[in-house]
């Protein structure tokens, strides 16, 4: 997979065309279009309530956009159910951590591999050699992924007993377990201290090096500036800027959105 993916670097992997989401009278996302290129770290920033998470939800099928099109890898996935989107290769994390509290960290990651497993109900009930082999492979891979994000020592703890930072990392490991080609991270560094943020960005770079395109939402401009190659800025549901970190940083509209209009 990785060889093929890196060859195609630079192609469009995710394409949003005029995506709009209305909740009754409220327009949460208004006619937003942009493209995410294969192999990059792409960031979506914006003040609170700008519609960033709503946009993620539209992409991953949590709810369909009111208007517009979402295509992934050349395929129109608008209105697909979340599990189909995940199966096609888009994984996500959540802003408010949603690990499975009463499952072990290991089980959380094993669950992530659910859609890549082939054991049918008879295999499961009768515990056939096929199911056993698959389960062993999945366990092995889950340990690898926990090691990859650096929380292997928590493998057997309940997810809810993990420290906050480890839970964020666990969510990333669980998302990686679905073998995504595009990983959506919804404020992965929220609540982190500067040191932890640096470590997280290292992890993001490591993920990108595995030929997974990363698309992240972030609040903290400084974090995003260092890590991402391109940025889209959303304010009140409207795209107000797009470009490299330098371009976005000096954009008057972005400064206004973050700091307010100067009198």
């Amino acid at each position: 997979m990785s060889a093929q993916e890196s060859e195609r670097a630079g192609e469009t992997i995710l394409d949003l065309e005029g995506v709009t989401k209305r909740f009754l009278g409220l327009v949460a996302v208004d006619n937003v279009s942009f493209e995410v290129k294969r192999g990059e770290v792409f960031a979506l920033i914006g003040p609170n309530g700008a519609g960033k998470t709503t946009l993620f939800n539209c992409i991953t099928g949590m709810f369909p956009p009111s208007e517009g099109r979402v295509s992934f890898d050349g395929r129109d996935i608008t209105g697909y159910k979340p599990h189909r989107v995940a199966f096609l290769g888009i994984a996500r994390t959540f802003q408010n951590i949603r690990v499975f509290d009463y499952m072990s960290a290991l089980d959380n990651v094993r669950l992530g591999q659910h859609s890549r497993m082939h054991a049918q109900i008879w295999d499961a009930i009768l515990k056939t050699p096929k199911a056993r082999r698959e389960e062993a492979e999945v366990t092995e891979r889950a340990h690898e992924l926990l090691r990859f994000v650096g929380i292997e020592r928590y493998a057997n703890s309940f997810a809810r007993n993990l420290p906050y930072g480890a839970q964020r990392r666990l969510e990333i490991a669980r998302a990686l377990a679905t073998t995504p080609r595009l990983l959506l991270l919804d404020e992965p560094a929220a609540g982190f201290n500067p040191q932890e943020k640096v470590e997280l960005m290292k992890l993001v770079e490591k993920i990108r090096a595995q030929d997974v395109t990363v698309f992240l939402i972030e609040h903290d401009m400084r974090v995003v500036m260092g890590a991402s190659s391109r940025i889209v800025v959303l304010d009140h549901g409207i795209k107000i800027a797009e470009g490299t970190p330098q371009e976005v940083r000096s954009d008057a509209k972005v400064i206004e959105a973050y700091l307010g209009k100067s009198a």
């Binding site: 995940a86 690990v99 499975f100 659910h114 669980r174």
Partner: peptide, 9 residues
């Protein structure tokens, strides 16, 4: 919701 996002139908 999280289960669906992880590919569980």
């Amino acid at each position: 919701v999280a289960a669906a996002a992880m590919g569980v139908n």
